[in-house]
Write a protein that binds this DNA or RNA. Structure first.
Lengths: 228, 228
DNA sequence: TAGTGGTCTAGACCACTAA
DNA sequence: TAGTGGTCTAGACCACTAA
């Protein structure tokens, strides 16, 4: 978590980042105005502006004149790799989304919740999901009713993460996956495996099996990350 | 190409960006020092610094004290989605890379080169590639011998792009693909389709068919894009 | 050692917009 | 209309490093 403190603006930015990442400042929280931060650190406003502008560029806060600087809702993928909430995606293309939780259990002597569930489009199974959520990092997840709430949607709305790792591969569906998705054994599936961290703590680990004939991923971006 | 000129630093940044994108300033070119740009625009150094620092953050230039600011080599994916040059990837994991061009032709009355080729790891076909390169945007590509040079590697070293779009999907290999990859028909393949632009011009369009059992994609990133 | 960029100051004026 | 952030100035000192 510790940032390099070599420069003042980096320290200010790091301090604010820490407040947000630890959850002390939740989404919607109004960050003190520049002149106040400036007094607190005994520095000029340009230095504060450099720090907070960087946070705005990276999407952690949003800034508005008069209304001030507000902690932003955690983005799922910062618009870089678009693997948004599947329910939104299905609804965006005019389908009817439904959810079915197949199996719930506690693992690792209660430290981890395991969820196996299906996501449907117009009543057809589109994706099988197997997910672990680590309660050490996200204790609130212990109380959530994942029988009715898709875990991905819940996490997206409640948890800020600092790093994610994806592995995308193609597999032929074997028995269990084929049965749940209702496809013949051997059918091509797109498999997305994702691990997400907050600082040093693993938040969640998920494997998603998409029907290859009904789903693909897309990503669009520029190398220059135009930030204004 | 035109940038919003609302502020001076955005204008300066846009002017330099244009020099790089049009190829007037090639990789390795030394950008005039801040004090010179400052005189040219009749502004203060802070304003110039803001403009050029933004370009450095986005990877278009790299900055060094004393050595000055240098136009950077075009990055392939800015480290966000790692689909690097496949030859590097194979060599990185200790394999021997080889390349075979299967088919070359001109399309669209000579405006477009089409290449179909295979990429091998240790003599085993790992990926089939079908690519179009649009000579309108990249006339130099007309002279390149793609019989011996993998087009992806050549483009990576010679072309700056502004936007890329990916589609990643899973398919069962049908006849042609299965034959070239040497796998049974119906085998799961990971298909990556990519379009790349420079400004309004399409540079290249490629479809890559990876053997699902031998390859996956990975991406690792943070939502905050830590830029220092 | 001389030129470069990195950082910072202590001001200033202004655009925007919620109250 | 009052508070906020966006931009800009004209300086300053310093760290780094290629020549």
């Amino acid at each position: 978590m510790a940032e390099i403190l070599s420069t003042l603006h980096a320290r200010i930015r790091g301090d604010i980042e820490a407040k947000i990442m630890t959850g002390a400042w939740r989404p919607g929280f109004v960050v003190p105005p520049e002149h106040e931060i400036m007094l607190h650190y005994g520095c000029s406003r340009m230095t504060v502006n450099k720090a907070v502008s960087a946070l705005a560029r990276s999407g952690l806060v949003s800034r508005n004149r008069r209304a001030g600087t507000v902690v932003a809702k955690p983005p799922l993928h910062a618009g870089v790799l678009q693997i948004p909430d599947i329910s939104h995606e299905i609804e965006a293309r005019g389908g009817v989304y439904s959810y079915n939780c197949i199996h719930l259990e506690l693992r690792n002597s209660g430290q981890c919740r395991f969820i196996r569930c299906l996501h449907f489009e117009d009543g057809v199974a589109l994706m099988l999901e197997e997910r672990e959520i680590f309660l050490h990092a996200i204790p609130e997840a212990g109380q959530v009713d994942f029988k009715s709430t898709p875990p991905g949607s819940w996490l997206m709305d409640h948890v800020a993460w600092t790093q994610a790792e994806h592995r995308i591969s193609a597999h032929s569906a074997e028995g269990t996956v084929a049965r749940h998705l209702g496809v013949p054994v051997g059918k091509a599936c797109l498999v997305v495996e994702r691990k997400t961290w907050r600082g040093p703590d693993t938040i969640t680990h998920v494997q998603q099996f998409f029907r290859g004939d009904k789903f693909d991923l897309s990503a669009r971006f520029s190398p220059t990350l135009p930030d204004c």
